[in-house]
Amino acid sequence: MPDDFIIANKKFKSRLIVGTGKYKDFEETADVIKASAVDIVTVAVRRVNISNKDQPLLMDYIDPKIITYLPNTAGCFTSDEALRTLRLAREIGGWKLVKLEVLGDKKILYPNMIETIKSTEALVKEGFEVMVYCTDDPILSKKLEDAGACAIMPLAAPIGSGIGIQNKTNITLIKEQSSVPVIVDAGVGTASDATIAMELGCDGVLINTAIAEAKNPVLMAGAMKHAVIAGRKAFKAERMKKRKYACASSPQENLI
């Protein structure tokens, strides 16, 4: 039975999305993308380095015709900055599917939800399909959906912290109430964190640092691929009920 991952009416096979930041070079980035078998990667928009014309370009290593580029607004602290960044991203190659993140604080990189909601409304009006990085607050997540977000992406924990899902209850509540995909974004540290997100019923997981800062990023990319698949299958299989006491697995009759 197909279990397609659908975002803004587009079908994807992999429920894992990876970031392309923090790798030692583009070869490693490309190897990670291959090992993780993802369909979507996040990318940042920055100035071209004018003084070094021969610098390699991400697009030379990761073909945007094969892998969907999801431009982000990392580093933006206001709605105006985020809008400017994504309008530029769209102009590069017609990208409408984007990742919005409007940050509120440099130390904890938590989203500024007031600016985030405002930006979502503006971007949707301009025809963007907006996947939104947000706090794990069910009320604000609902506001984002009402504003037209095509995916809700609550943090598991602060960006780059690697400490896993801090509030499973909230993630579950957000998933239950959302009619658009819910993707855990930020804070995943290792494979089990990704599996837990999927077992909670989330539609996908977005990971960057947990892969990039592993001692062997390519191996971890493969681990994350399997972790997401395992968690999704476990969720679909509907796990057993928990019991207080033991329940023997072998028959109790005809014992010798």
Binding site: I50, L58, N72, A74
Partner: peptide, 27 residues
């Protein structure tokens, strides 16, 4: 933002502020 098809027609003037951006790795 300047649309790509308008590049040949846009003549740059003294003190113009030009930003050229592209995609780089990011999370």
């Amino acid at each position: 933002i300047v649309e790509k098809n308008k590049y040949p027609n846009l003549i740059l003037r003294k003190n113009d502020k030009v930003e050229i951006v592209h995609f780089i790795g990011g999370g």
